[in-house]
Design a protein around this nucleic acid. Sequence first.
DNA 1: CAGATTTTGTGTTGCGCACCTCAAAAATTG
DNA 2: CAATTTTTGAGGTGCGCAACACAAAATCTG
Lengths: 349, 349
Amino acid sequence: MTDSATQPVLRATLEDVARAAGVSLATVDRVVNRREGVRAKTVARVEAAVAKLGYRADLAAARLARGQTFRFAFVLPTGSNSFMTNLSEQVARTAGWLAGHRGFIDIHHVDVFDPDVLAGALENLSPAYQGVAVIALDHPRVRAAIDELVARGVAVVTLVSDAPSSSRVHYVGIDNPAAGRTAATLMGRFLAGREGTVAVIAGSLSLRDHTERQFGFHQILSSEYANLSTLPVIEGRDDSDRTRDLTAALLARHADLRGIYCCGAGNRGIADALEASGRAREVVWITHELTEHTRRFLVRGTLDAVINQDAGHEARSAARVLLAHCSGEPISPDQERIRIDIFLRDNLP
Amino acid sequence: MTDSATQPVLRATLEDVARAAGVSLATVDRVVNRREGVRAKTVARVEAAVAKLGYRADLAAARLARGQTFRFAFVLPTGSNSFMTNLSEQVARTAGWLAGHRGFIDIHHVDVFDPDVLAGALENLSPAYQGVAVIALDHPRVRAAIDELVARGVAVVTLVSDAPSSSRVHYVGIDNPAAGRTAATLMGRFLAGREGTVAVIAGSLSLRDHTERQFGFHQILSSEYANLSTLPVIEGRDDSDRTRDLTAALLARHADLRGIYCCGAGNRGIADALEASGRAREVVWITHELTEHTRRFLVRGTLDAVINQDAGHEARSAARVLLAHCSGEPISPDQERIRIDIFLRDNLP
DNA sequence: CAGATTTTGTGTTGCGCACCTCAAAAATTG
DNA sequence: CAATTTTTGAGGTGCGCAACACAAAATCTG
């Protein structure tokens, strides 16, 4: 056992480094802030002193002295499903946190599902923003708008839905094909050898994330679970009423329906239809995003598993990445990686 | 769309608040730092101004002015399994981060599984520490040591393994009974209706977390999956060799063995035995903690699911909670809640 | 070796706040 | 109303650093 704590810790300051290196404060400042006009030999001396004393800049003091403030825009969908509502709330909370760190977030609500509207919103964003987080659409105009922002020196991160071919600096969200594969494995194993059909319900196939999820789902199901065949993908447009009708029709038409994978929203419709049919217990239903509704269906046993992305984590991660990018600090990749959560009735948070 | 960003943001400062409230800086300071000697009427005036201007203390400036430094001890097990090694590494990383925020972490390696050694280590901890994170043992002496630290004004959080009846201020870790229930549900559903027996392997039943997990596991398995019967719990002492032999014996003795739930370490032994028996594919194996080894077994298909707690998250959370506690700031509960992760081959991070 | 150039030192300012002292003003009391 | 107590104001200091100006020294030119 190593008990090395004895007295209150005194951090090494810039002055300590200067003394140790036998140079002045100004020179140390030049070295640590990578300004030029210092001989290589002197740089080495200073760096040796930094290493020896374990000097690390006091972030609080540095931020204070620099006096920079950061202004970020979060572009989120207008009044939408539970997940998006939750995300907005988490972004608002994150804004509260950031305010203590000289960062400010404005939330802009736009119709992110219309490429022209979204691109227009990005184009008209005030030049005061050093960073933008956006739920992207992988569309040429949107890509162009992102690229232009980046060209102007704005840090852009995509949130939840990516635009991989744009020049955004970071994507904050889950690996959607992997999420689909995860759903497929759960479906295949929960149905362990039973024969029948499985339905896939998406919000819209023009959304990149939904497409990727169903792609991953089909990939695994067709290659590993020959006992199950999938029906053509149905588009529920993330609307509960429409989804309920579609689900009811599915149940009526396919007596051998064993599973439903929903890679979008509209879950209340599915629950209604399933419960009305009396087959809620026997049909395995897997969906995305933990909300107050899906949580209820999970507890009740109608829903079997939820694949989730943590909205709070995403909001905080986006803010951290933007902040780090703007102040030239490194990010730690594995803290910023958004996990694909699996929730059963038993491990609900 | 609300584009309200126009110019670089100017935060309201204490001085702004003073001006708005028509009082002096000193009075504002008295109010915001809850010092006494201010009339209730004046307090109200100042608070109104704070609210109106949306004043929030600049954390960087406040920390700098306060000049406090924090010193924390993390008490971790001596050279141990992969999970603990990983945890140590994550704590070391967290220390690096904390150093930028005037916080310092010393890691003390002790045999946390011996109550006397652990309690002794806690008792002999330098009084310089304002906070301690410890992998606790729910034992009277350990409890007493924790209580004494708390009585001395030290913030104590338990990490990974709790001592619920002690006076620790926070537990950073997962809900272990729930983790066991989660494993049981996966086991039951993956075995969907097949008849047979399931084995449970623990490290040691004197470890609270292992006991709780197997309790949760049995609870669900016995009440919901009548087709499966469990064998008496086996203690593998988190040792691979011993666990391999025990698993091999199990496989030899029980031809109807359908599943293995391991709620401790020693996974390499299980993998060896399973693969040697040729029944790796048919026996459902579920274990805890994602490590380089369990990851490999998962990808290979020998292992079916991993219940995980994120060591990085736990290390950071413990540091944040200690920091918040020592500087009187609130914590946000849902950021500090450690989730029960489920990993399949498909959603590995 | 004088002059030009590069490198280093000295010094100052201010970021926003906490914390302190001392005096002035206001409210309360006998 | 004077004496006392409570409340408020004015002012200062320093936290550790960034940023800058300017002077002094060292080094490099021709």
